[in-house]
Amino acid sequence: MSIAELADVTAAHPVLRELRPNLAPLEEFRAQAEQQQAAGYRLIASLDGNGEIAAVAGFRTGRSFAWGHYLYIDDLVTLPAARKQGHAKALLDWIDAEARRLGIGEIHLDSGTSRHDAHRRYRGTGFVIPSLHFSKPTPEA
């Protein structure tokens, strides 16, 4: 298993669809990914023994009054056939090292309330649940 930063995000599209089934078709996805990359989004992959992508993590850095200099994990997913083989932990370890390298004080992520296996992984790697995240659609005018 090895970790690689992906300059071309198209290879991650089928893996990200596991987490986000409503993900845009490939060309739309590529255009949005390029916009996100221009704003600092980075995508890394955990490769299996054959060099195939088994898991991906997408993240960005920022600054806020609430968190200071932070790293936010937008996407973290492992293909079903590759789960429980250490890919998510390897990605999270790489992100920890990158956050240290960048002098970042905190790493954040949100996770759907029904993703219990993911929650166990996050808690097992030092994440805590310090707050609840609320959202709502923008009211129509």
Rank of each mutant, 00 (worst) to 15 (best):
Q36V: 07
G68P: 02
P21T: 09
L132T: 13
G86V: 04
W94N: 05
F127W: 07
A39G: 08
S2V: 04
K136D: 03
A38C: 05
G40M: 08
F59S: 02
E106C: 12
R17Y: 03
T113Q: 13
F59A: 05
K84G: 00
A82L: 08
A11N: 02
F134E: 07
P130G: 02
H69P: 10
L132C: 07
D110R: 13
I44T: 09
K84M: 03
F29H: 10
F127E: 09
I104E: 05
E28H: 14
Y72V: 10
H69A: 15
E18K: 10
A38W: 03
A90Q: 07
R115G: 05
Q85G: 08
K136S: 10
G51Y: 03
G49H: 12
S114N: 11
D48H: 02
R120Q: 09
G68M: 05
L47Q: 03
P130Q: 03
D75N: 13
Y72Q: 13
H133Y: 03
G49F: 06
G62K: 02
L19W: 12
R115H: 08
Y72A: 11
S111A: 14
D75T: 12
E34K: 13
R60A: 08
A118V: 01
A11S: 12
L71R: 02
H69F: 13
Q37E: 09
K89G: 03
V15R: 04
H108W: 12
H69S: 15
P130I: 02
H116F: 14
T78I: 06
D74H: 04
A81F: 04
G58S: 07
E140W: 12
A12C: 09
P137C: 07
Q37D: 07
A31T: 14
H69L: 12
R120C: 01
A88K: 00
F127I: 06
F59Q: 04
L19R: 09
A4C: 10
L79M: 11
E106D: 15
Y70P: 05
P14Q: 07
N22W: 08
L109G: 02
F59P: 03
I95M: 06
R121I: 15
S2W: 00
G105C: 08
G58Y: 00
V56R: 03
D110V: 11
V77M: 04
I3Q: 00
E5I: 09
D8Q: 09
R120A: 10
A12F: 05
A24R: 12
G126K: 09
K136W: 06
R101M: 02
Q85F: 01
L19G: 05
G105W: 03
E28R: 15
A7I: 15
Q32Y: 12
F65C: 10
A4N: 06
A66S: 14
A45R: 01
R20K: 09
M1V: 07
Q37M: 13
I95Y: 02
L6I: 00
A66L: 13
F29V: 10
G68F: 01
A81L: 08
L79Q: 11
A12Y: 05
M1F: 01
N50W: 09
A38M: 07
V128M: 08
A12I: 06
A141I: 13
P80G: 08
E18L: 10
